[in-house]
Nucleic acid binder design. Structure first.
Lengths: 403, 403
DNA sequence: TTGAAAGCGGTACCAA
DNA sequence: TTGGTACCGCTTTCAA
């Protein structure tokens, strides 16, 4: 065995193996002109082999030292870590994943209703999974009618599955927290998407910022309705965090920005189209008639129908989400704006967080709040192309790219 | 040599190796209940070895056949392709990149001004490069003072570099088209970001939709200013496509949506703060005084200063981009909205397109138009966290994740 | 406590 | 035209 030597430790410039090099000749603090070191040949990043040969030890030992495994003398470990740092060693993720060749099973529990939201959400998950190189993911999609119907039962069956990861939109947190906690205790990483269940033991949550959604609606109505008037808001179910938060944001912002607008009592449609229609009709028959209306769930069509039947043309309406029926209404100006919750991006983001956690052990942000997109008549076209993704499930060309 | 056999072709269910399996027992068109096939053991995707042994040939031959290389008999090739399809073969990108172990050099040519836009753009590129597993990228960042100062010279030096890829924001297309074409002819993949140069031979372009930015500004002013009035717009340089497009969108939308608003002649600030201040002052001294103002470049501070000095409090202002100085103005309502061009996302997207092209040969969308974010007082907080990314260039922990 | 070597799934080279 | 094999960087097992 040759004596330990650092001879090779300087084959690569000390410091981190920076991804960027400076081509501009600019003196640094240490007086070195980096430009003079720059070569046109990209330098290969150092590997465990380089560390091993620098110290005259074997790659096996280097690996054990880097991973802090037992059975390495404190001395060697220290020397390995030092050289690793000097060389700016970064593990080659490609080699690692090839060797480990891990398979992950991820359960996805989303309702069928409301399709305009959950279909693109599923697509986002699928797209992210397909694009993620480095692991084999098996996505198990489970569906049930609605958030408040069938989720609990479906999730019960997930307990035995021992998934590596779980993606879901929790309905009423109080009811499913306990199942989720059981699943989490089994070692399944749970990520909530679209809505949060903070006490469920979930790893992270991805959603739009509900409070801000409500606040935006209030601000836009405040700017658009300039006379003294009343405004109303229709939501789904105030037990659902997302809905309650939207109302809070709406009311709070209205109070601050629009002293000239008064807020009528909130209406809960319980996500039922019939109920929404009935309640909206009642609202529009009473006095004072609202000059503005914020519909904070995707269940807006029955309300708009009631509006139409009451011949109310000058009510400023703000809706939620984007689906085909809204397009002509935005184009004609019957709807002032709709707040798009970007389900595709939510799904993609949620999957990516999960994957990074499972593969690299990176702890995700506990809460990611996306900014909702404000869709107006003028920017509507930009969102249409995303929306009309056809259900093309044909398999891609299985042959690799020719070159 | 054993006779060719398809014996093993059915070890995996025929059809594509689908990433998703159905756990819900639901009859399909062919009458098969997929749930009955589902096993809890994730199935390992087929590799070239499986194809080879299914046909009783060597993996070398399979590889040649799959890649359509010469020196394979038409017969074997056909059989290999058929079995590959039956097995749902998808090449393992991880193994491929490990073997090929490619190094890419990417030149990034962006101006220092305007920092609030180009700094996050650079960050987006860096972040995407760091997150992209599968290749080693060397990013060469080149900077120059402004879009219209130094870019051409800097690019000239890129001709000899023979980069694999190039990311840049083209200034005046007429002036740099020819350099870019020369670089493109050398085989460098060029992606424009932030602004397009359609005739430069670039592979693709990523930007916000300029026309729509102008249109949004017009729509918002149209809704907010309800009396008859004049509105004005201040841009940089109409030779820059992005600026011209914004004006077109603004004017066209104003004409359609706001018959009560008249558009004053456009003002070009030539991206000079002094010039912007002078011109804005002149504008505000003349009659009719505009009731609304759309500033379509990030160079808005001098204009706002002029506005302040003229004691015009009721002018509705829409600005472009987001930087620290705008924050208090949005919070206080002096600015109605700012149109955020999402430079970070632009940079990330541009890099990802480039990487997919270089690695997998995937032709990117020729033009990607992002929707600008409409930043109001109410949703401002959501964007602040993104903006204040400190200039932390310290190297990350070089040790791999312990597990 | 350490070294040596097999092998993950492709690619590419040399020999047959 | 084909088969056999070394190798990419890392992890892991078996021996020493």
């Amino acid at each position: 065995m040759s004596p330990p030597t650092l001879a090779k430790a300087w084959t690569t410039p000390a410091g981190s193996h920076s991804k960027s090099r400076y081509a501009i000749s600019r003196p640094r603090k240490d007086g070195i002109h980096l430009a003079t070191i720059v070569s046109k040949q990209p330098t290969k990043p150092p590997g465990i082999k380089d560390i091993a040969s620098a110290l005259g030890i074997s790659i096996g030992t280097v690996d054990r030292a880097l991973h802090g495994r037992s059975d390495v003398s404190a001395n060697t470990r220290a020397r390995v870590l030092k050289v690793a740092e000097q060389l700016g060693y970064r593990p080659n993720m490609v080699a690692r994943s090839l060797k480990l060749n891990r398979q992950f099973r991820v359960g996805v529990y989303l309702p069928r209703q409301i399709a305009s939201f959950f279909d693109p959400l599923r697509e986002g998950i699928r797209a992210a999974a397909a694009a993620y190189i480095g692991i084999n993911v098996d996505l198990d999609f489970h569906s049930f009618p609605r958030l408040d119907e069938g989720q609990l039962e479906e999730l019960e069956s997930a307990v035995g599955q021992n998934y590596d990861g779980l993606l879901l939109t929790p309905g009423d947190p109080g009811r499913i927290d306990s199942v989720l906690r059981r699943i989490a205790r089994q070692g399944t990483a749970i990520i909530c998407v679209g809505n949060d269940a903070p006490r469920s033991g979930r790893l992270a949550a991805v959603s739009t910022d509900s409070y801000t959604s409500g606040a935006i609606a209030a601000e836009m109505l405040a700017r658009t309705i300039q006379k003294s008037a009343a405004v109303a808001t229709i939501t789904g179910e105030l037990t659902i965090m997302d809905h309650a938060e939207k109302l809070r944001g709406f009311a709070a912002t209205l109070a601050v920005l629009a002293p000239h607008l008064s807020l009528l009592p909130v209406i809960e449609s319980h996500e039922s189209p019939k109920e929404a229609y009935r309640q909206a009709s009642a609202l529009l028959s009473r006095k004072p008639r609202p000059a503005g209306l914020y519909i904070s769930t995707a269940n807006s069509i029955p309300v708009l129908q009631a509006l139409d039947e009451h011949l109310l043309k000058d009510v400023q309406v703000i809706t939620t989400d984007l689906f085909p029926e809204l397009i002509p209404l935005l184009e004609s100006g019957k709807i002032l704006a709709t707040l798009h919750q970007r389900p595709f991006v939510q799904g993609r983001t949620a999957f990516e967080s999960l994957a990074r956690y499972l593969v690299e052990g990176v702890q995700p942000e506990p809460v990611t709040k996306l900014a909702p997109h404000i869709v107006l008549r003028s920017n509507l076209p930009l969102f249409l192309s995303q929306m009309i993704e056809p259900e093309d499930s044909g398999s891609k060309d299985p042959t690799p790219p020719k070159r």
